[in-house]
Design a protein around this nucleic acid. Structure first.
Lengths: 359, 359
DNA sequence: AGGGCACAGGAAACCGGTTGCCACCAAGAT
DNA sequence: ATCTTGGTGGCAACCGGTTTCCTGTGCCCT
């Protein structure tokens, strides 16, 4: 036979790259629109129309094509579609820190909302790194149709410049005054005010604030609100203690708290509050008998601690959901609606009580 | 001029769709390789080569092209690249429930590991829905280069069939015997054994198990191990109580636990253990004085409860990291290495103590 | 001076879809 | 019997990149 000898290194022509070992059943590499069209004896255009449910294809032809597609278990390539359509059906979320319960819940809310609209979610973590965050945002945005940027650490002028390239964009926990970028944030000041009022009603006059990380914008909000609210009353004393955002930070600050003589502690967040409670307990102080403690966030555990924590609750999930709503509106070409500042809800539990009667 | 009148509805030809309002500076729509090539007076091929650092371009030309690209702030379209290269630099993660701390940590570990290798992460939640999970997995996989499937609820035969289409695939907390799919899982049996041994040393003889969700494979593992370990000792009694996976489930089961007369409670996970502790406390029982309680998972809060929880710790983050390692090996064409079963580490804290001396 | 060679860079095919435009066909109208 | 009309479905351009192949150039060597 002339078959032998005519093949130096097996370099035949077409070889539709079936990726090595022929497996049982359908070929390895996913079927393409071209192969389906060929198998069904129609043009690629027709297959495309059928797959997209275009009504301009005769019903019987459509059925046949569908049958062939089914048999080859063909699914249009999302990547190719994305290129052709100029849209990816994907949105991105960028957060500073995936370990933070706040962002975990935002992620969940966003993912679920996007999912019900047939969109996928790309997630990236900036690790609190400003330079990386900007790069990441641009990159992620180009892989998707829109972007949710949570608690961005990017300085305002830069963010303003960036916002054009990132649109459709929704900001979380960060505002950009005078811009059209929709922004969802938490009214930390309002939360602090509610806490302060609660504490004041309980008779507290000497307060200690366990501050969060220096770069945190939301910590700044809290401080400002705290000073403003507490300063209205001249008989009051406020001590600000550098602390942090973790349990251990709060724990370590307990001694300093005692040193201030405060009768109530306002912690940056729930974790810090737990740490503080734990530390105070070890120092022999009773909460709330000797000293009251408040948190912020209402993380899931806040109701299960001993004593349950008085805190300001913020609807983290809802933040994610609404971010999607805004983004969806933007993707639809419409306006995104006005900015929203979520009002924290004060949850009075058992970590706060009347100020001890001064001796 | 013959220019007028020859334009019925403004239908000129090219119209490079600059998307309406001309903004200041660079044009709205991102620059394309074609426009850069044109501006630089070279072919698209050359621009492509420059952007990819090909050494076959003369240095001065490369510099010029780079300058032009910079000026137009051109970035190659990831979508187009994905199509051309047949790879997306993205991997997907599918989890049953984003609210579960376990998966949150896996997500984080995976995201960080993938990030350092220049890959992005697509996340989807199956909501514990088997049918949806399969669809989601296929869809997600086609948008990315590989897939991590966590605690899949898909029945074995179906999963086996699916695994071909999903490769490169890494399974988390789920094994597929006899398959080549790498699998990372937790040796729940070993964890249970450690707990049992600890309890036995403390003199406990009557045990109550607060079982997890019925569909959970890891719950099955625990039950089996528990029966095996406890049955070796004829003087021991084991009561299995249907419960669930949440704090409230555990809380609700407290009364039933008391009914069994058990001196120690093995809870499905930490949350259930917390709930049980809380419920037992309300019923007037002291932990561990009257009854010991153990958890499973070592969620961050386990060390902060009152009393701190004795539990079996599993390296959730590490699971994510290693999932990436396996996936990366697979993407590289190599073998993924053998399956791993992580050994939980028993953390003895203060929720367990000697069995009360029987009356 | 001419042949050979290395190399830089352009033309065009390709990735896998979508879609505007047009040709073709059958049926209804005149 | 011819023109019109409407519905079907193919052709080919396009999305924005990458890569193979090939050509043209300049240099070196004899």
């Amino acid at each position: 036979m002339s078959l032998t000898g005519k093949r130096p290194t097996g370099s035949d022509r077409p070889v539709p790259r079936t990726s090595g070992r022929g497996r049982t059943g359908a070929d390895r590499a996913p079927a393409t629109i071209g192969r389906v069209a060929e198998a069904a004896g129609v043009s690629r255009a027709t297959v495309s129309r059928v797959m997209n449910g275009s009504p301009t294809v005769a019903p019987d032809l459509a059925a046949r094509v569908r049958a062939v597609a089914e048999a080859m278990d063909y699914q249009p390539s999302p990547v190719a579609r994305s290129l052709a359509l100029g849209r990816t059906s994907t949105v991105s979320l960028i957060v500073p820190d995936l370990a933070n319960p706040m962002f975990q819940d935002v992620l969940r809310g966003l993912s679920q909302a996007a999912g019900t609209y047939g969109h996928r979610l790309l997630v990236a973590e900036s690790n609190e790194n400003v330079a990386e965050e900007a790069i990441l945002a641009v990159e992620a945005r180009r892989r998707s149709d829109g972007l949710v940027l949570a608690s961005s650490r990017v300085p305002e002028p830069e963010l303003r410049a960036l916002s054009e390239r990132l649109a459709p964009l929704v900001l979380l926990n960060r505002e950009l005054p005078g811009s059209t970028v929709p922004s969802l944030s938490v009214d930390y000041a309002a939360g602090i005010n509610a806490i302060v009022e609660h504490l004041r009603e309980l008779g507290h006059r000497r307060l200690a604030y366990l501050a969060g990380p220096p770069a945190s914008a939301s910590d700044r909000d809290r401080r400002v609100a705290l000073r403003a609210a507490w300063a209205t009353d001249p008989g009051c004393q406020l001590s600000e203690l550098d602390c942090g955002s973790t349990f251990d930070d709060g724990h370590a600050a307990a001694r300093a708290v005692v040193g201030t003589g405060a009768t109530a502690v306002v912690a940056f967040n729930d974790m810090v509050a737990f740490g503080a409670m734990s530390g105070l307990h070890e120092l022999g102080l009773a909460v709330p008998g000797d000293i009251s403690v408040t948190g912020f966030d209402d993380i899931p555990f806040a109701r299960y601690t001993n004593p349950p924590l008085t805190t300001a609750s913020i609807p983290r999930n809802e933040l994610g959901r609404q971010a999607w709503d805004r983004l969806w509106a933007l993707l639809d070409g419409g306006p995104a609606g006005h900015n929203v500042r979520f009002q924290p809800r004060l949850l009075v539990r058992e970590s706060t009580g009347p100020a001890p009667t001064s001796d």
